[in-house]
Amino acid sequence: MDILITGLILGGTYALIALGLNLQYGVSRIMNLANGEMLVIGAFVAFTLFTVGQVSPLLTIFLVAPLAYVLNWLIYRIMLRPLVNRAKNRGMLEVDAILTTFGLSFVMVGIMIWAFGGDYFSYSYLARPIVIFGDNFGLNRVVAFLCAAVLCAGLFLWLNVSRAGMAIRAVAVSPENARLVGIDVPKLSARAFALGGAVTAVGGAVISTFLTLDASTGVMFTMKALIIVIMGGVGDVRGTILAALVLGIGETFVASVIDPGLTLVAAYALFILILLFRPQGFFGRKPT
């Protein structure tokens, strides 16, 4: 029970981060390998505001979200759009996007180390125990989970109900046909990329309430988010959330039963199973 709840709580925050990545990949078709750094930046802003001005991280997200939106929009327009335009085919864009976002990720880590040093940062926010089903859990973890759950639900509703959300889903399914029904695909790609970045940064601010991070931890989160997106299926919100919870529980299980140093091995075991048996994701159809 303990493992299940801890896993669910961890998975909930993973879901938020992976949703950001999935939004970016599903719509703009760019696998953003600098996604984890956006998370660290969000976490870092939350940390700074809390230690300097005692600002609650739950308020910080209202600052982080628009900032990250603008930053990611600029990244897309200035750096990625030219690659989309010059690519002769999907494969070329893929390679260019991988190299560029890796480059960006390293540049961001480099700048953060240069500006703030490579130390770990953490702060103590709501670090009180709370009892659920007879077991103790950190209140900050529970609050972070609730926060992530509210945001995921909000995003899910927005994608399914609103006009803009509908357009985004249309592009995710088929960019060519979306263009035919009058959707401005390039504009929407930029917006979805920006929104995805904002969601991930908010996830970073939330996760910083209970995890210790440093400038170079981003790549770990990128990797987990990527594995979740692949498990859940590209462009599939339900799948992403389910996959995040599975990964959260799987990791917690391995960490508490076998060894906390094996979390990535656990994630990889899941990844390999998915690659071998359901490469199209949990709910995905077989590609034809």
């Binding site: 696998m31 390998l33 893929e94 390679v95 790549v219 692949i230 990535l264 091995v265 990889y268 990844f271």
Partner: peptide, 24 residues
């Protein structure tokens, strides 16, 4: 057998995963 993105992601974590395994 799969697309390039899957391959990159997989190989990206391979060193770190092996390191965790050897350490353990």
């Amino acid at each position: 057998r799969l697309s390039g993105v899957y391959f990159v992601i997989f190989t990206l974590g391979l060193a770190e995963m092996t390191r965790q395994g050897v350490t353990w």
